[in-house]
């Protein structure tokens, strides 16, 4: 029983990490006032590039770097259109997702069915040998710790430093930030690139750690769930971490129930994360006080400086 519980907890952590990585990046993007709906596309390209780079070099670390680079490159395309060309952010984000999914399918065609390179778990001697707690706290792969470190870092920077104040100022009132002499477009470019890197990393996590292989559409809506998580967490980093782990738990419980075979159709259990996402959005969005307090006031609005 203990072993079973342990393995369930371990899979919950690996299922939650990609959601957390993708959504913490998008949280920073949205805090700066930009809505990038292309997370799903950047994740898909990150997954395929990470997989391919790891396969050709044999090194999962190079795979991770490739995944990040791919995410950043795609986000720059989004940034150029929405920030420099002042295009509609919703439509451009959708375009990024459509292009990303198409590109990933095309690039990954020759990778289908190939065995992947798996990112190994850290094995801190002595500590990871502690029964039960050891493997959970000290036996994860590197990116699990990285994801939590990013959350801590984002939380610190956003609310305890001047940089964070500038990012939030740009997101809450871009005209005031501009009048104070801050480069609204510059801050937003950096935020968008950070979000792209995180989304690419999340994709790389899927194809290098979660399931080390490439399957088309392997992101299966996780980028969209990440977007919903940001709303669910009302733009607060630690609440986001809790949300991501909650969603990971629900996904894995669905799978576990499927394995036990309790007579519920497997498709119904697979649709659980999507239905829960909708319910979470309903619960949070219905609470006006909570959302209004933290929603960046300029979210999704294009910035054109007054001349």
């Amino acid at each position: 029983m203990n072993d079973q519980l342990l393995s369930i907890i371990l899979t919950i952590i690996t299922a939650s990490t990609p959601l957390l990585l993708a959504s913490i990046g998008e949280l920073v993007v949205e805090r700066s006032g930009v809505l990038n709906l292309g997370v799903e596309g950047m994740m898909a390209v990150g997954a395929v590039c990470g997989f391919g780079a790891a396969l050709t070099t044999g090194s999962p670390l190079i795979g991770i770097l490739a995944a990040i680079a791919a995410g950043v490159l795609l986000s720059l395309l989004f940034g150029f259109l929405t920030l420099t060309m002042i295009s509609n952010q919703v439509a451009t984000g959708l375009a990024l997702t459509l292009l990303g999914l198409g590109l990933a399918g095309l690039i990954g065609e020759s990778f289908v069915g190939q065995p992947g390179v798996k990112l190994q778990n850290l094995d801190i001697p002595v500590l990871s040998a502690i029964p039960f707690i050891g493997p959970i706290l000290f036996g994860q792969d590197l990116l699990v710790y990285v994801s939590l470190a990013i959350v801590a870092g984002v939380s610190y920077v956003l609310f305890r430093t001047k940089t964070g104040l500038i990012i939030r100022a740009v997101g809450d009132s871009h005209q005031s930030a501009h009048a104070l002499g801050y480069s609204v477009i510059g801050v937003r470019y950096l935020a968008v690139m950070f979000g792209g890197g995180c989304a690419g990393l999340a994709g790389g996590y899927l194809s290098l750690a979660y399931t080390p292989q490439w399957v088309e559409n392997m992101t299966s809506g996780r980028g969209w769930i990440a977007l919903a998580l940001v709303v669910f967490a009302s733009w607060l980093p630690w609440r986001l971490a809790i949300g991501a782990y909650l969603f990971g738990t629900i996904t894995i419980l669905g799978f576990s129930l499927q394995a036990i075979g309790i007579g519920i159709p497997s498709q119904l259990l697979s649709s659980l994360p999507y239905i829960v996402t909708i319910l979470a959005l309903v619960v949070i969005s219905g609470n006006r006080a909570l959302t209004r307090a933290n929603t960046p006031a300029c979210l999704g609005q294009p910035f054109v400086p007054d001349r």
């Binding site: 709906l37 919703v90 769930i225 996402t277 909708i278 959005l281 309903v282």
Partner: peptide, 11 residues
């Protein structure tokens, strides 16, 4: 509930 229609319709 003013739930974002982009996300709900896609889910």
């Amino acid at each position: 509930f003013s739930a974002n229609e982009i996300l709900t319709s896609l889910m």
